[in-house]
Amino acid sequence: MNVLHFVGAFFGDSAHWHGYDGIPTRLLEHLRYSLIALGVAAAVGLPAGLLTGHTGRGGNVLAFIATAARALPSFGLLVLMFILFGFGLVPVMIPLVVLAVPPILVTTYEAMRSVDPSPVDAARGMGMSEARILFQVELPVALPVVLGGLRTAAVQIVSTATIAAYVSLGGLGRYIMDGLYQHDYEKVVGGATLVAALALVTLALFWAAGRLTVSPGVRRRG
């Protein structure tokens, strides 16, 4: 009766590999929720973080928003949104985005603020435009930390997207939720394993993205 036994049973059962409740379907659903949520959160958090970090203004407002967003409980927010909007993707996306924006926002801001000011001064003295300074001087140096914020957000989204199943949507949370109601531990453990594996793949992807995009001159600290 150990966990590994359940994992083996879950993945060994060929019924779990086909149809609308098959692993490929659920995995794709889960990926879809996660990517949309991460995309929206990045579209909100990155520009705001980069801009406030570059100008150095609005840091307090940003910290306040992040603290407030963090205080909102994802599960409660999901139920609330479900009651307000009914069945659909939106009630799931709102808690996921609220969950992911604070780490992206705060980390991006801090990363930009921690860039050594003297190259920025030198760049300005050489006549670089502010946009160039942001994208060619500050961002390359801040990139590892910015990616770290995105990575934290992505792992949290992947893990939390399981709650979508509570409001009758799909994704890997289906296995966990159904398993809970059917007292089918095999399903619960199988679902959890898939989520953890997806989270690890996410980490690996971010690691690879870092290797590809971060200059060796910045990466040295490793």
Partner: peptide
């Protein structure tokens, strides 16, 4: 004040902005 010597700060691995439920 911001934390000192930001340049050497290690990546805020999981510490950064931990969220709520999953």
């Amino acid at each position: 004040a911001r934390r000192p010597s930001a340049g050497n700060r290690p990546e805020p691995a999981v510490t950064a902005g931990k969220g709520a439920a999953r």
